[in-house]
Simulated assay, not measured.
Amino acid sequence: MMNKMIAASHSIFILILVLLLLSGCATQPYGSFIQNPSPIYNRYSKVMADDVTAQIVRLYPAASTQFNLRHVVNDSFGKALIENLRLEGFAVQEATQQSIQQQIFAAPHQLDTESQKGLTLSYIIDQSGDLYHVKLMIDDMRLSRAFAAQADSIHPAGLWVRKE
């Protein structure tokens, strides 16, 4: 009787541990990490999205490139970036929470070939003081650039850094 209770408690513990690990996999470490964005941040994010778009235009042909977002976009930078990319002629497939969960739990052969067309795109935007950091991931390539906010405007604080 006691052994059954111990075995059952071990099973429950393992089940809870597995569920916690899976829920950790479901959260995406992408998007905006700006805490309590100020109203001026919306203007900053538009300027940064314009700069990111200009860099993407330099690297990829617009009419024949599709980007598949890896994460749900719910911040002003991401919305401006998607709008800019579409205006430049890129196809952009936005991610939904449901599509992300399907990708996590699907077997590799179950993934729709339509969603595999194009390049995966994700970004991280963060802030430390008056510096904003934009990191862009396109398939295996990483692009990053810092932006400095000064006197109600924002400007690049260096060149683009590219890592493949």
Results as ranks from 00 to 15, higher is better:
I6S: 06
A7M: 11
S9Y: 05
S9H: 08
H10C: 14
S11I: 11
I12G: 09
F13H: 12
I16D: 08
V18I: 14
L19W: 10
L20F: 13
L21M: 13
S23K: 13
T27M: 10
T27Q: 11
Y30K: 04
F33W: 05
S38R: 08
Y41H: 12
N42G: 06
R43F: 12
Y44H: 05
V52Q: 08
Q55N: 09
A62N: 01
Q66D: 06
F67E: 00
F67T: 02
F67Q: 01
N68V: 14
R70F: 10
V73E: 02
A80Q: 09
R86V: 05
L87N: 01
A91C: 04
Q93N: 12
E94I: 03
T96Y: 05
Q98K: 14
Q103I: 09
Q103M: 14
A106V: 02
P108R: 02
P108A: 05
P108M: 05
S115W: 10
G118P: 04
L119N: 10
Y123V: 00
I124P: 08
I125N: 03
I125G: 00
D126I: 05
Q127C: 05
G129W: 06
Y132S: 07
K135T: 15
L136R: 01
L136P: 01
D140C: 07
D140T: 13
R142F: 10
L143C: 01
S144K: 06
R145G: 02
A146D: 15
Q150Y: 13
S153F: 07
I154C: 06
A157L: 06
G158A: 04
G158V: 08
L159T: 13
